[in-house]
Design a protein around this nucleic acid. Structure first.
Lengths: 379, 379
DNA sequence: GATCACTGTGGTAACGATGCCACATTCGAT
DNA sequence: ATCGAATGTGGCATCGTTACCACAGTGATC
């Protein structure tokens, strides 16, 4: 019944007394701030947030006192009260991969500037870890999440809970959220055309998946370029592999054993390119003299090796920043617009790893090499 | 005076009524969970946390119901109540740099497994941004922070507030916190000795700072190796540069113009190595025939180029995981032990970028080259 | 049969910030 | 003189969780 605290009926003389030295230095709360400024917590809150009326003089005093006593508003209390926080979750597959690292960096930069902070969860491409990460995001009540999806389940969980989701790099079929995609078809088509223009006709595509828009798009672009050049589409030149560089290495070795007539190799992402590059080196093949190599997704080593690798630059930083901007717009915007999907236009970076094929390299009677394939230089 | 809520004196019949359809689907709280399980919130809390008595049967029921209704405890409410959270702040300089990316990855992996989540803030090496990051950490009441310090101010702020701080890779003078350091002296000495053993006598060190334990240690190790080999320590062969690769490139160019007798170059970190490598390439110098190149900090491109770069591997992942483990121990441990500083032993990875110097390359009467320096093969 | 320890449960008050409401005060317009 | 709007301010309940306390049983012990 007696709800009045025992340390004084009034309220004002309640010195912080015995609790003070227990634990360590208590952090000043808005109560302390208010007391120090000689006003009520309500007014202090208004002064800080700018919502509602406060006399200019009072506001100035509050700000000064806050600075002086080192008042930092408690984000958790705020989040609890407001039922949303300034935190944005970022759920990516592998922060060690420069693609994801740059993506995260771009996101973080942009969001930090806008006053949000970023919670990063890695999922190693595992759907289970992804769901776990989503659960974390829900627990801390992130206001938004940026996800390079693995399974769709996590994205759904988040959306069901009212979290603003931006899917990055790829999107789950059937889930309508904001998203930022790279124009994979365009990029793949351009770089394939570059090879075709150089005179290559037996171009192999090394690819790890075609279920997502990424893989599917790159395959589609590859095909479109061949089609445009009226080159035959040899399905055995689309080489499936697992994602790991060493798997790619094996796949390339198997390919070259099988098809010595291949003159150019297109690796669908940076990991596969790494494996391919190593395979070529170990075989003692010279790039681009013996074989041209191109890749999707420009990462640092590609410009360090010589010759540098001709690649499709996805502008990963931009991709990240665009995701972040979408989040900012979505959270700031009062009008709940429809889901927005932005596209990043990739660009081809020509380096030294591509050149015209060297003559014909027939080692036997194999291959579908037709006459005229030697030095076509189409277009 | 009347503190009893108006919606019923008893408590049980308080149906959630009109609020239900406002906003969107409300998330189940522990109240909902308790109601569904036919117990009180207190008991539900105990059942979930395992603190205090709960009948086994009840606990099982609560867990089942929680699963069923999709109850996720609110991290903010928890953090508010407990005055600490499951969040750990990670404050690093440049997530695009593979060193920091791997560090962050190692940290994240380990902490995630232990049930913490990670808030990443990049500071671009700016003290101001670092302080801003620390403020963010305080605001969300992280229980610990892992920092690659820039200025010391941020670390101090965090420590003052009772946050468990682990300094990573380098430590601020005069601040006693937990820390994980790489044995820079050892690594630098080993790799310099490797050069000495190959017969190099004019070895240049390219370095961007010597104020931190990192730079100072690498310089010390470099010197120690020369001293051990009784080689003269030529101060003009310690080449200062700024951190950026292009600055390093310029520095290397200037050095080689000035001192054509240099036969080996040691870049004190991966960024400088990048610049140095580019400078050598553009000058048309062959590695290791014309010049040997070594670096501190192994990053991916170093094993992709040919010849691969001989480097000191800092085991960055380990470094990160060790930081995380220190946090876990510190937070879990009841006994407040003294500050712990762990050391990571780096290891030298020999690749193709080092070889014996090619003959004597005297172009004039400069240099302190003494007779016998041609093909010494010491030891 | 009283005392005690132990098990198990529910009520309640925080944690810190904020928005609503009630209440003052001032000024201008009627 | 009176009303109303505009400007300020403080009190209070609330967000969801948990630690503390009070209390109710149940056995065991002297």
């Amino acid at each position: 019944m007696a709800r009045i605290p025992e340390d004084g009926g009034g309220g004002s003389p309640r010195e912080a007394g015995p609790r003070q030295r227990k634990r360590q230095r208590q952090r000043p709360t808005i109560q302390d701030l208010a007391r120090a400024a000689g006003i009520s917590p309500s007014t202090a809150s208004r002064a800080l947030s700018g919502n509602g009326y406060v006399a200019a003089e009072v506001r100035a005093r509050v700000l000064a006192v806050a600075e002086q006593i080192g008042y930092v508003p408690d984000g958790n209390a705020r989040a609890l009260r407001n039922r949303t926080s300034r935190a944005v979750g970022v759920l990516i597959s592998d922060i060690r991969n420069p693609f994801y690292a740059n993506l995260a960096a771009g996101i973080e930069e942009q969001l930090r500037a806008a006053g949000y902070h970023v919670i990063v969860v890695n999922n190693d491409g595992q759907a289970e870890a992804e769901v776990e990460g989503a659960r974390t995001f829900l627990a801390v009540r992130v206001s938004a999440a940026i996800v390079t999806p693995v399974s769709g389940q996590a994205v759904r969980m988040l959306m069901d809970d009212g979290v603003a989701v931006v899917q990055a790099d790829r999107m789950v079929d059937g889930l309508t959220s904001d998203g930022v995609l790279v124009d994979n078809v365009q990029g793949a088509q351009e770089i394939t055309s570059h090879l075709v223009d150089l005179g290559h006709t037996n171009i192999a595509l090394l690819i790890d998946e075609t279920d997502w828009t990424t893989g599917a798009g790159r395959l589609a672009g590859f095909r479109a370029a061949l089609r445009a050049a009226r080159l035959p589409m040899d399905p055995t030149l689309v080489v499936p592999t697992r994602f790991q560089p060493d798997a790619a290495r094996d796949a390339v070795n198997a390919l070259l054993d099988r098809r010595p007539d291949v003159t150019a190799l297109f690796a669908a992402n940076n990991m596969l390119a790494e494996g391919a590059f190593q395979a070529l080196q170990r075989r003692g093949l010279r790039v681009p003299d013996d074989l041209s190599l191109v890749a999707f997704d420009d990462v640092p080593w590609m410009s360090m090796v010589s010759p540098g690798i001709t690649t499709v630059d996805q502008h990963t930083d931009d991709l990240g920043r665009t995701c972040a901007q979408l989040v900012i717009d979505r959270l700031g915007g009062s009008a709940p617009t429809l889901a927005t999907v932005r596209h990043i236009e990739p660009s081809v970076v020509i380096r030294g790893s591509t050149a015209a094929p060297r003559g014909v390299r027939i080692r036997g009677a194999d291959s579908g090499l037709r006459p005229g394939a030697t030095a076509p230089s189409p277009r």
